[in-house]
Design a protein around this nucleic acid. Sequence first.
DNA 1: ACCTGAACACCGTTCAAGT
DNA 2: ACCTGAACACCGTTCAAGT
Lengths: 222, 222
Amino acid sequence: MAMPPRKRGPRRSVDRSTVLDAALALVDSGGLQALTMRSLAAEVGLTPGALYTYFPDRAAIVSALVDALLAEADTSVLATAWPWQERITTFALGLRDVLLRHPGIVPALLGDAFRGPVALTVGERLLDALADAGLPPDEAARASYGVMVYVLGAIALEAAEIPPGAPAAPEDVRIAERRAALGHLDPSAHPRTHAAADTIAAYVSTDQFRWGLNRMLTGLRR
Amino acid sequence: MAMPPRKRGPRRSVDRSTVLDAALALVDSGGLQALTMRSLAAEVGLTPGALYTYFPDRAAIVSALVDALLAEADTSVLATAWPWQERITTFALGLRDVLLRHPGIVPALLGDAFRGPVALTVGERLLDALADAGLPPDEAARASYGVMVYVLGAIALEAAEIPPGAPAAPEDVRIAERRAALGHLDPSAHPRTHAAADTIAAYVSTDQFRWGLNRMLTGLRR
DNA sequence: ACCTGAACACCGTTCAAGT
DNA sequence: ACCTGAACACCGTTCAAGT
């Protein structure tokens, strides 16, 4: 029975990944602003100052969190022998899945992230896929950025509508809420918006995400 | 000489727009985090608590700032008789111009904004343009979101690379800096990235913004 | 209505001191 | 190396009291 002396909180043995796990839990349950050095320290059973043993500052924790989450997306699909559109679409859907399960860190993702190590390999694999699409290197690179802009933009807009703290309502509920909000609209002031309310409510659907990505890919292939 | 009694700071007479002007100046000169109730109060010559006469809380100030900036973009081009692609492209370039002049508030724009009054009219006008493109209402709506995703995504990624506080280096300088950073890259680990470094460095150019938008519009018209 | 002064309940970060 | 306890310099927000 050689249990290490367990004091106070839920601490067992602390290292960087323990801290990151606790940080993610805090962000998931209260948004980015719920991640404070004090709440995080309490979560792992430490004093706030002790966290500086593992990370230089709060920003480094957020960055590490972003990169860890990015790494959770399955990049291997980009390296399969599937048709290039399917590779890109499947990866994008997977990334969206991961990030919408943790909507609280998405603002940070756009803020400081797409230059981390994971982003680099995603970029390289994207260039592979677009080369397979028959695009010359220069055009493949431009197209690659087009894909990233669309994917990250769509995820950011969707994540922004998910209130922090809750575990993200299912898609149909989120769409229904948007549809209800669009009901309180002056039809004469915004006739086209009013007429297309059902479609607009479904902007945050997987179907719309796919549709838009497909159109983008179509345009990129020229 | 009936000057009102001028005390202390740069105060003359304070109202909501005075506060917003000062808030924007703070964000421009130090990013969103430089906008504190205390710094803002000092800027307009008030006590922090007095700001709550004009806005319910800090978040309301940020939201009002976003909407004011959005309103600065010229939406009238969307209502011209120009070809639909030109209307959308010109508006998008104008929006990008406005927002990249104030990169500090862009995170807030994506965070809470595209449902303000300005966003509504932009959406309606976008539907006009896409109807003129010959798209049926449902498809025009989906396409409209595609355009917003691309435009906001591109602006967000660009703004994220502009360090706060500085007045945003000119485009060629930003590209040169990216090019230099890409020089410190292992060519064998990321061969395609290395080979396309010049193009990748220029991701943040007006030219790339236009190119990607053009491809998106091409895809949307099918 | 508008504003001050002061307080309350927080922050991130640093640092001597201990183990 | 890792951690505590305490401090420093901040935050947003509230509220009695004044005009």
